[in-house]
């Protein structure tokens, strides 16, 4: 137990003051390997598919955009190695040098920036509304007096309570119950992060009968996390993403996973597309 504790403390301290014997770029130049942490069950970002292949949007971004730039930078081909990371393990994995980059569904927040650095934002989602096709609900401004289901304890419920006090909020502990209530008319709409709603819609018996509406009323930008203070490596990761955005390859990959024929249809709004393009600073 004491040993475990010492180990934990060491990992925790590691997150604050990484004992950098060598920078990440030096390490990759020496070993020729980039190790990333990704999820195994988070489609379409990173998951094991029917052919037992570990694939996904965030893995493609690393493989097709970041790896080439990285190889050019260190002057030799770099191999990709994947390890499983989960929300509770991802920061310790990074801090202990077990992985160099976290490429999953991690929201970039100011408090997380105290312990890790983030790449550019590569995916944006935020809270929206799932409604039956043709519903008069168009967003957070049109839910006054309506029955709105939300996930119990979510920040979304909190925002609704503050910004739309006239809505009749019904909080359900789990997604299936909330969706059932929506399907039967107990509630008029269900609110959650857009990408969650897209997943729900795709799995519904009749996906075409549902619509995801409204501007994001909360903001969840996903970024790739890397060790704090490793500016050179972060530069390479960002350059890879920016070149992908410039060349349009980034959007092709997005289309492959989130397009109409993708694993999970979730079209990129014009605003988000603009935001992605503006993230890529000039050469």
């Amino acid at each position: 137990m004491k040993k475990m504790l010492t180990l934990l403390v060491a990992i925790a301290l590691g997150a604050v003051t990484p004992a950098m014997a060598e920078t990440t770029l030096e390490k990759i130049a020496r070993t020729g390997v980039l190790t990333i942490g990704a999820r195994t069950g988070s489609p379409p970002f990173a998951f094991v598919d029917a052919q037992n292949q570990w694939v996904g949007f965030s893995i493609d971004l690393v493989e097709q955009l970041i790896l080439p730039t990285l190889s050019k930078k260190v002057g030799k081909p770099v191999k990709l190695e994947k390890k499983e990371s989960t929300p509770p393990t991802r920061i310790p994995l990074l801090a202990s040098n077990a992985v160099d980059l976290i490429a999953e569904t991690m929201t970039d927040t100011r408090s997380r920036r105290d312990s890790v650095d983030f790449s550019l934002t590569f995916f944006v989602t935020g809270a929206q509304f799932l409604v039956k096709k043709g519903s008069p609900i168009k967003g957070i401004k049109s839910i006054a007096g309506r029955r709105v289901a939300a996930q119990q304890g979510s920040t979304n419920a909190r925002i609704i309570r503050e910004q739309a006090p006239k809505a009749q909020l019904r909080e359900f502990p789990d997604q299936p119950a909330a969706f059932q209530a929506l399907a039967q008319g107990q509630v008029d709409t269900y609110t959650n992060d857009g990408i969650q709603l897209a997943g729900l819609k795709a799995k519904a018996p009749n996906p075409r009968g549902w619509e995801i509406v409204g501007d994001f009323y909360s903001y969840e930008p996903y970024g790739m996390a890397l060790r704090k203070g490793d500016a050179d490596f972060r530069g390479v990761v960002n350059n890879g993403l920016m070149e992908g955005i410039d060349s349009g390859k980034f959007f092709d990959i997005y289309e492959k996973w989130f397009g109409p024929k993708g694993e999970l249809p979730y079209p990129m709004s014009p605003d988000i597309k603009k935001f992605m393009i503006y993230q890529a600073v000039p050469k």
């Binding site: 289901a149 119990q152 019904r170 909080e171 359900f172 502990p173 119950a177 209530a181």
Partner: peptide, 9 residues
Amino acid sequence: SVALTISVT
């Protein structure tokens, strides 16, 4: 308390 599963506050 089980009623919270059907959103009784």
